[in-house]
Amino acid sequence: KVILLEDVKGLGKKGDVVEVKDGYARNFLIPQGLAVEATKGNLKEL
């Protein structure tokens, strides 16, 4: 699961917690600054 930092077409809006494949999160969303891993600490910051 990841928390979206920006609106991502076809996935969700900023602040949404979405389930995506590990590779998509690690190789695209997180490096592009579009999402962060949905850890307990990150979820509390919402």
Rank of each mutant, 00 (worst) to 15 (best):
K1T: 11
K1S: 13
K1D: 05
K1C: 11
K1G: 04
K1I: 10
K1W: 13
K1A: 10
K1V: 10
K1P: 07
K1E: 06
V2M: 09
V2D: 00
V2T: 02
V2H: 04
V2L: 06
V2A: 02
V2I: 11
V2R: 00
V2N: 01
V2K: 01
V2C: 09
I3M: 06
I3R: 08
I3V: 10
I3W: 03
I3H: 04
I3G: 01
L4H: 00
L4R: 00
L4T: 00
L4I: 02
L4M: 04
L4Q: 00
L4N: 00
L4Y: 00
L4G: 00
L5G: 01
L5Q: 07
L5N: 04
L5E: 02
L5M: 10
L5F: 03
E6G: 09
E6A: 11
E6S: 13
E6T: 15
E6N: 11
D7S: 07
D7Y: 09
D7P: 06
D7R: 05
D7H: 09
D7L: 04
V8G: 00
V8R: 03
V8F: 08
V8Q: 03
V8E: 01
V8C: 07
V8P: 00
V8H: 04
K9Q: 15
K9A: 14
K9Y: 14
K9C: 10
G10P: 04
G10I: 03
G10M: 06
G10V: 03
G10F: 08
G10L: 05
G10T: 05
G10Y: 09
G10C: 15
G10D: 09
L11V: 12
L11T: 04
L11G: 01
L11F: 07
L11I: 11
L11C: 06
L11E: 01
L11W: 05
L11R: 02
L11H: 03
G12A: 02
G12Q: 01
G12E: 00
G12I: 00
G12Y: 00
K13T: 08
K13S: 10
K13D: 06
K13Y: 09
K13A: 13
K14E: 04
K14G: 04
K14W: 03
G15K: 03
G15M: 05
G15R: 03
G15H: 08
G15F: 10
D16R: 04
D16V: 05
D16P: 00
D16N: 06
D16A: 11
D16W: 09
V17W: 08
V17R: 05
V17A: 04
V18R: 05
V18M: 07
V18C: 06
V18E: 01
V18T: 03
V18I: 12
E19N: 11
E19T: 11
E19V: 13
E19K: 11
E19L: 13
E19H: 12
E19A: 11
E19P: 09
V20Y: 02
V20C: 07
V20K: 00
K21Y: 10
K21C: 13
K21V: 13
K21P: 14
K21A: 14
K21N: 14
K21Q: 12
D22Q: 09
D22L: 08
D22E: 12
D22Y: 08
G23T: 12
G23E: 15
G23K: 11
G23M: 12
G23N: 13
G23C: 14
G23Y: 10
G23L: 08
Y24C: 07
Y24L: 09
Y24R: 03
A25I: 06
A25V: 06
A25N: 05
A25E: 05
A25G: 11
A25S: 06
A25F: 08
R26P: 07
R26S: 11
R26L: 12
R26T: 12
R26V: 11
R26I: 11
R26A: 12
N27F: 08
N27A: 10
N27W: 07
N27T: 10
N27G: 11
N27E: 13
N27Y: 11
F28N: 14
F28A: 09
F28G: 08
F28I: 14
F28P: 03
F28Q: 12
L29K: 00
I30N: 02
I30K: 03
I30G: 04
I30L: 07
I30Y: 11
I30A: 02
I30D: 05
P31C: 13
P31T: 15
P31F: 10
P31Y: 13
P31W: 13
P31M: 15
P31E: 15
P31K: 14
Q32V: 07
Q32P: 02
Q32T: 10
Q32R: 08
Q32K: 12
Q32N: 13
Q32H: 11
G33I: 02
G33R: 07
G33A: 05
G33Y: 05
G33D: 04
G33K: 08
G33H: 07
G33Q: 07
L34T: 03
L34S: 04
L34K: 11
L34Q: 06
L34H: 04
L34A: 04
L34W: 04
A35N: 00
A35R: 00
A35Q: 01
A35L: 01
A35E: 01
A35S: 02
A35G: 06
A35I: 02
V36L: 09
V36Y: 05
V36H: 05
V36N: 04
V36R: 07
E37C: 13
E37N: 09
E37I: 14
E37W: 12
A38N: 06
A38R: 03
A38V: 05
A38P: 07
A38F: 09
T39N: 14
T39I: 06
T39S: 09
T39G: 08
T39R: 05
T39V: 08
K40V: 14
K40W: 10
K40E: 15
K40S: 11
K40M: 13
K40F: 14
K40H: 13
G41Q: 12
G41H: 14
G41I: 13
G41R: 14
N42L: 08
N42K: 07
N42Q: 08
N42S: 08
N42W: 01
L43E: 15
L43C: 15
L43P: 04
L43R: 03
L43I: 08
L43W: 04
L43N: 13
K44Y: 02
K44H: 15
K44V: 14
K44N: 15
K44D: 15
K44A: 14
K44E: 15
K44L: 15
K44T: 09
E45D: 15
E45G: 12
E45F: 03
E45P: 03
E45T: 03
E45Y: 04
L46M: 13
L46N: 15
L46T: 15
L46F: 04
L46D: 15
L46E: 15
L46P: 15
L46Q: 15
